[in-house]
């Protein structure tokens, strides 16, 4: 054993050295924390700077053309009406939301208010696994399983309401369509919506539920009249995240919703969304700095603007409808 007793100056020196080291560490950690700001700034910078050079070649009126919208940046006869891509992005997102939000919310209410602890312990990991399935696999599923199924349904509905015709006289759902892609997108956002909504509902204090039960409300009445309003800001946040995910979803639509930029609001059609367009252009060789190169950034800017608008709307809504307890 050595004598470990230190003199006072030695201890002071030790502390001082440690303090200097600590300060360096803080700086390093701060730099790491600032990296997220740098990433955001980088994203905004590249999108805006490439878009500026896009708009120096394409007039704004052409970009926002609503009268005769066409999107053909890779053809000789170039047209740049962004509404062509926005319409299909909104249609697929609309289908996705129509499936994902009701199912996600109901599953969340069930898990939070109805299910036993045991059921929850089993179901939550399974939902997490569903959330972990890569989107390209969902795309395959949409194209190979859901589309044939929907084709049969569309045919069956027509045969039911207008029977007696030859099978090929009926409308045939195309192999690439936004409906199937949207349905699968909706399924893929269920875990996201249900898990965030459930967390929000579980955070509602128990006393509020007990008060409701005490005056004779059932679990369902308590869920909808007490828990849901109290947890609304968290639930809206989950919807916003689900919608943003659907807007930016790429692989499902690129595989199953078609790759032609067509201006349509009909979910039975196939059309390229904003992200499909970016993928289609990036698949080929594009020259850095060319107009084609600029278009994918301007499309990306439109996408970011849409998700940003969603976020702002969600922020506003959750402030308006929030119940303070």
């Amino acid at each position: 054993m050595t004598n470990t007793a230190l003199s006072l100056p030695q201890i002071r020196k030790l502390i001082q050295r440690q303090n200097v080291f600590d300060q360096f560490v803080v700086l390093a950690l701060l730099a790491a924390a600032l990296s997220s700001v740098i990433v955001t700034a980088g994203i905004l910078y590249i999108l805006i700077s490439e878009s500026v050079s896009f708009f120096s070649q394409v007039p704004l009126g052409e970009f926002f053309n609503l009268v005769d919208p066409k999107w053909t940046p890779l053809f000789d006869d170039k047209n740049f009406a962004i509404i062509t891509l926005i319409s299909s992005t909104l249609v697929t997102t609309g289908v996705s939301v129509a499936i994902g939000i009701p199912m996600g919310t109901i599953i969340a209410i069930y898990l939070s208010e109805f299910a036993t602890e045991q059921v929850r312990e089993w179901v939550k990991p399974i939902l997490e696994l569903l959330a972990g399935v890569p989107s390209v696999v969902f795309g395959y599923f949409a194209l190979q399983t859901v589309t044939p199924f929907m084709q049969r349904i569309v045919l069956g509905v027509q045969m039911f309401f207008a029977p007696g015709r030859d099978e090929f006289d009926y409308y045939q759902l195309p192999g690439f369509n936004m409906l199937s892609a949207g349905i699968v997108m909706g399924i893929s956002i269920i875990p996201l919506i249900s898990s965030i909504s459930e967390d929000a509902m579980r955070a509602v204090p128990k006393q509020m539920r007990e008060g409701s039960f005490a005056v004779g409300a059932t679990r369902l009445q308590t869920s909808f009249n007490v828990v849901l309003p109290a947890a609304i800001s968290g639930i809206i946040a989950s919807y916003i995240l689900g919608i943003s995910r659907s807007l930016g979803q790429t692989m499902i639509v690129a595989v199953a919703a078609g790759t032609q930029p067509i201006y349509t609001w009909n979910p039975l059609d196939g059309a390229a969304t904003i992200s499909t367009f970016i993928v289609e252009v990036a698949k080929g060789d594009i020259e850095h700095g060319s107009l084609e190169y600029n278009t994918i950034f301007v499309a990306g800017l439109a996408l970011v603007a849409m998700t940003l608008a969603m976020n702002l709307l969600g922020h506003y809504l959750s402030k308006r409808v929030r119940e303070v307890y």
């Binding site: 997220s36 955001t40 994203i43 979803q249 950034f297």
Partner: peptide, 30 residues
């Protein structure tokens, strides 16, 4: 600064993944 960074990280989580691809294309590749 911390508040700012926090809001930033929340927003980054909502940015579509393909936009990160555009960032990688412009910054890392080009």
């Amino acid at each position: 600064l911390t508040d700012f960074i926090e809001i930033n990280i929340t927003n980054l989580a909502g940015v579509p993944s393909i936009v990160y691809g555009l960032l990688g294309l412009e910054i890392f590749k080009e």
